[in-house]
């Protein structure tokens, strides 16, 4: 009986590891290729162990293209991402508090409007927004990437915060109100400190989506000096540039390091955010 149970456990863990190896293989392969000597990447392609470790790929990749190094792209991405995270936190908390706690007229119809925009394909507003930003002279600046975050550009985050604030006991608001706290005071002193875990979730998601975003910078940024990491990486696969495989893999790895670090340290908030949308919603 016990033996059978042990065998079952062994099969369970064994099959999960084997399947897991398939799952993780492309990522390990990327990391391995970034360290391989250039002529080895496509010889023994499947191998995960470089014959010798070549950190030079990273140095060469970091130099970038012409007088543009990857440092520029990383600084650009960091700036855009930071601004978007700040903007998202600002707009999603304020708006969510309004929807969750203030009983103004047209609250429900407007809330429904917001939920509908959750499902709106990005492409539908892409062209008229481009025309609008073009007229405003914002093309080839970071404004089209950053400003939408400050005005609730991603309704998913508002939705997430509304769900969270609804879970905070209303007695807290009422007690504060009786003590003479204004509505903004309730928001600032009572609700906001309690939403910290949800704020972390929102911040992490908006970090991921902005860091990864390809289409928006592709559409709005023309000047290579303004390129984000995502666009910088794409330059490697440009057929007109000499393909340098080692540096390409090295910079691919470099670009995902921030994402991996955030994932490893803040996994808990990510999991909560994903499941909150799907299960409680």
């Amino acid at each position: 009986m016990k033996r059978q149970k042990n065998l079952k456990t062994l099969i369970y863990h064994g099959s999960i590891w084997i399947l897991g190896l398939f799952m993780i293989y492309p990522i390990l392969w990327t990391i391995a290729s970034s360290l391989k000597p250039e002529n080895e990447i496509f010889r023994n392609a499947a191998s995960l162990i470089p014959s010798e470790i070549r950190w030079g790929n990273f140095l060469k990749g970091w130099e970038g293209f012409g007088d543009l190094s990857f440092a520029t792209f990383f600084i650009n991405s960091t700036f855009v991402t930071t601004m978007v995270v700040i903007g998202t936190l600002f707009s999603s908390t304020l708006v969510a508090f309004g929807f969750a706690r203030v009983n103004f007229r047209f609250r429900m119809p407007l809330f429904v409007c917001m939920i509908i925009t959750l499902m709106l394909p990005q492409q539908v507003t892409l062209i008229p927004q481009y025309i609008l930003f073009h007229k405003l002279g914002w093309v080839n600046t970071y404004l089209p990437l950053i400003v939408p975050a400050f005005i609730g550009g991603i309704p998913f985050f508002i939705f997430l915060m509304v769900q969270f604030i609804r879970g905070i006991p209303r007695e807290l608001d009422e007690a504060a109100y009786m003590d003479g706290c204004s509505t903004f005071g309730i928001f600032w002193r009572v609700i906001l400190p309690l939403t910290m875990p949800a704020l972390a979730t929102v911040a992490i998601f908006s970090f991921y989506w902005t860091w990864d975003d390809f289409m928006t910078p592709l559409v709005y940024l023309n000047d290579t000096k303004l390129y984000t990491v995502a666009l910088g990486l794409q330059m490697f696969s440009d057929p007109s540039s000499l393909s340098a495989w080692g540096p390409m893999f090295a910079m691919s790895v470099a670009s995902i390091i921030p994402q991996l670090l955030v994932f490893l340290f803040f996994q808990k908030y990510l999991v909560e955010g994903i499941t909150a949308g799907g299960v409680k919603g």
């Binding site: 897991g20 799952m23 993780i24 492309p26 990522i27 392969w29 990327t30 290729s33 990447i41 496509f42 991921y208 860091w211 990864d212 390809f214 990491v229 995502a230 666009l231 990486l233 794409q234 490697f236 696969s237 495989w245 390409m248 893999f249 910079m251 691919s252 790895v253 670009s255 995902i256 994402q259 991996l260 994932f263």
Partner: peptide, 20 residues
């Protein structure tokens, strides 16, 4: 382990690598 691909899979880095 199984979630890592979803974190990185949408990135340009993985798209560029996928091609190779």
């Amino acid at each position: 382990l199984y979630y890592v691909p979803s974190i990185l899979g949408g990135s340009v880095a993985i798209a560029v690598v996928w091609k190779q």
